[in-house]
């Protein structure tokens, strides 16, 4: 269980998180939706300790991660995998080396075993015969799949997905969503997905929370959010220009 309580975070004069609270249940897929620029990526970076809040409490499996550095923080981070918005693949390494890297650094597995695992994970995400390519030779969708393979290769307990399908065509989006659902069914990790893909994200999420003006506006099951009567939630889901959310 990940508990975020009353998180405040500002960058200069810009307040990004303003009393944000959310409980993320273990073994479920939680989707965080909300307009662009509302601090969803910032929120994920708080969960994994890349950013520290100005105030508030963050607990991962009952352990507070506030103020942690070095090995205590790394011990908690070992529970996590993360798929970044632009995949953040190491551009000087091939696809194979990218996925093998966590295994080489965090396990004592031999070369043959690492090779077997990497190829199997790549196959699971639908990638074959690309292991010798470099990230800049791949399409956006393929990069995200390699990022997903790298995130799951150590079988982490929690995986954070930062806009896993942004910028992809509808078929690639569906493919990535299916992959998340299938890998989740197989490994049973806790997933936190930041996404704009409405309504597709409702098909794979167990819980949905909407972030607006630095806090959670509403949370519930996908059905509850889809049938919400809250004006801002309704406006966001319908993509309407009229309502409390003003983008300009």
């Amino acid at each position: 269980m990940i508990i975020l309580h009353d998180i405040h975070k500002s960058f200069g004069i810009q307040k990004v998180l303003d009393g944000f609270s959310l409980d993320i249940p273990t073994g479920r897929i939680t989707a965080i939706i909300g307009p662009s620029g509302e601090g969803k990526s910032v929120l994920l970076k708080h969960i994994i300790g890349l950013l520290q809040p100005d105030s508030g409490m963050i607990k991962v499996d009952g352990e507070s991660i506030l103020g942690l550095r070095g090995s205590p923080l790394n011990r908690i981070r070992e529970k996590f995998g993360m798929l970044f918005q632009n995949a953040a693949l190491f551009d000087s390494m091939t696809v194979f080396e990218n996925v093998a890297f966590p295994l080489q650094e965090k396990t004592t597995l031999g070369k043959a075993e690492i090779r077997k695992r990497v190829l199997s994970v790549l196959e699971n995400v639908g990638l074959k015969n690309v292991e010798h390519k470099f990230p800049d030779e791949l399409s956006g969708g393929m990069k995200k799949r390699v990022g997903l393979a790298r995130a799951v290769v150590l079988s982490p307990k929690i995986i954070l997905f930062d806009e896993p399908t942004t910028g992809l065509d509808p078929i690639s989006t569906r493919t990535i969503h299916n992959l998340i659902r299938e890998t989740h069914a197989k490994f049973g990790f806790t997933a936190v997905i930041v996404s704009h893909e409405i309504p597709e994200i409702f098909d794979i999420a167990h819980n949905v929370a909407m972030l607006f003006r630095g806090r959670i506006l509403q949370q519930g099951t996908p059905d509850e959010i889809m049938n919400s009567t809250h004006p801002a939630v309704k406006q966001f889901i319908n993509g309407s220009l009229d309502g409390p959310i003003h983008m300009m």
Partner: peptide, 18 residues
């Protein structure tokens, strides 16, 4: 610098690697 802006350094940190 490029590794920093493309979040590759963050990726290393999230893998609990210094």
């Amino acid at each position: 610098g490029i590794m920093r802006i493309s979040e590759q350094i963050d990726a290393l940190e999230t893998m609990a690697l210094d």
